[in-house]
Design a protein around this nucleic acid. Sequence first.
DNA 1: ACCGGTAGCTAAACCGCGTTAGTTCCGCCT
DNA 2: AGGCGGAACTAACGCGGTTTAGCTACCGGT
Lengths: 346, 346
Amino acid sequence: MPTARRPTIRDIARRAGVSESAVSFALNGRPGVSEGTRERVRRVAEQLGWHPSSAARALSGERTGAVGLVLARPASTLGVESFFLQLVSGVQEALSTRRAALLFQVVESLDTECELYRRWWAERRVDGVLVVDPRSEDPRPALLGELGLPAVVVGGGEAGERLSSVSADDTSAMASIIDHLHGLGHRRIVHVAGLPGFVHTERRVSCLRAEAAARGLDPHRTRSVTTDYSDSEGAEATRLLLDEPDPPTAIVYDNDVMAVAGLATAQERSVAVPAELSVVAWDDSPLCRVTHPRLTALVRDTAAFGRLAARELLRLLDGESGRAVASALPRLEPRESTGEANRAAS
Amino acid sequence: MPTARRPTIRDIARRAGVSESAVSFALNGRPGVSEGTRERVRRVAEQLGWHPSSAARALSGERTGAVGLVLARPASTLGVESFFLQLVSGVQEALSTRRAALLFQVVESLDTECELYRRWWAERRVDGVLVVDPRSEDPRPALLGELGLPAVVVGGGEAGERLSSVSADDTSAMASIIDHLHGLGHRRIVHVAGLPGFVHTERRVSCLRAEAAARGLDPHRTRSVTTDYSDSEGAEATRLLLDEPDPPTAIVYDNDVMAVAGLATAQERSVAVPAELSVVAWDDSPLCRVTHPRLTALVRDTAAFGRLAARELLRLLDGESGRAVASALPRLEPRESTGEANRAAS
DNA sequence: ACCGGTAGCTAAACCGCGTTAGTTCCGCCT
DNA sequence: AGGCGGAACTAACGCGGTTTAGCTACCGGT
């Protein structure tokens, strides 16, 4: 069987007995055709299963109907966190209301990511992009500004003319965690953070420092250590911490995988959780609920975060100017992995 | 600052002092220009940072330079498995050699997925697609055939003219698991499978049945139960199994998340693993290595699987005809969650 | 000296849409 | 009756490439 031919506005025009321009007017809601004709054209288009060629449309209208999302992470730290698929699924929920497509790409490094933006721009593949994992010295906003490619930075950063940012309130999230732990009597709290260059990592780190200072905690005991988000570095960090002379009584991990790995490491050493050590996971997931004890976790609606980011990008594409948007506050869900600090130990 | 203008072949033509067609010939390696001119044009293009407009190219050449991947899973069962991000990252590694882009979309149902294929086809958004989670009564291959959209079914199924399939050898994988467990003395082995409509689920189920028959195991004891891949159904299935009068001595879970949940459930009931119950996870991940005991798992190179599938799709796009391709054999990695069957219990 | 063939190039058409500049027709006003 | 304006529609162009059909100059053969 030969491939079915794709219908074009020409086919519609012939069937409806009008010119191609009339069809274009009718289908795009422009003035210039009578209501009767418009309706007739619409019916024919429907009946033929017509959809505009994205290529042709992009070529004339300068709009592709696609947005891009690049994930720059080495393959090893990939594929464990539930965060990204959730985010992406939220993004698409918002995009699908406009029939926009998502170009998704995983690359190894930030440089490759920047090259990719250049290529996408030159190839006119995308109308805008979502930037994730913002860094403290991030070359991407400047590049995108130079290219004139609208962008939304997911996770914070400043806004610009064609640049928005949506951010989770890491500061108050960290504060609520410290509040919870401090209230349970913990005085030696260590934060096992993710990659050091990331903006959200640094925000969390500095918030922890501020909280510690505000509560008069020893900054050598209550502090952050950085990792690459992997289970192995999470476990390794945990081992080093437990080996210290005055080990922490509570550890906050920057993702679910490290939290689970840390919990396992503690149990391996017969450190009782939560009796001797409390554990908190930043970001909830099914993982946090299948361990024993279940992990106290910071619950965020990641899909909603993705929706918010995508909607903001659509707003930019509509010509509105950039701004900074804050997402809903995360909530700390206390479970069995956190408990009163051991009096003797503290 | 105004947005930089994107260079076109016209700019190149002017700078190089030749016609636009000559530029096109030169850059696409067609005959019709001298080597000297070709080289000069190439240099100018490079210098201008030119990349062909994907829209313009698609409009004339009928090729978009993009392929699609749709994931039809309800949001709830999403985002836990490491499988898809790994697959996608492998896919892109292969695609990037041809500078092809990936359109990635998550939808709720198979119907939406089919609609999406129709739309992508009509909009000429993709040159071909990767189909995942093949079902036993799958409408997708027929639809794609009708549309003339080249496709690769990831996970098995038959091939066609513009349709290939790449498959993991589930049968021998299941055989190796049963072999391992049977060798350890297990005679009551239950397989906690994933969604019942999936081809790979059914292949695994029927292989388990065949293996049981071949070894003379009681088909009421050695059998499969199906779930939706979620941690909660994995845990629930485990509870039901452990409550049976003659509970299984070994359970094989169809993904890592259910295996971890199952292990936790057993431990919650003080069922010792592996002394009283052996646990196997189908698909390895960091999760399987952070539990106690660590989980015996079926290790597959998922990224390599993705690469294979993408390469096969590129082959189809080059005009080669469809075929069935087999991926590398999976390997069973024995860890501490499997051990000798308890003599008394069996 | 003449002719045919080919290498190297240009002009022009085309892909499918959006858009702008006409064109026709009709009703209304003076 | 003539002019005028707007509604409804069509013709033609451009977007940035690819591709086909020419066109010219040169080269070798007889």
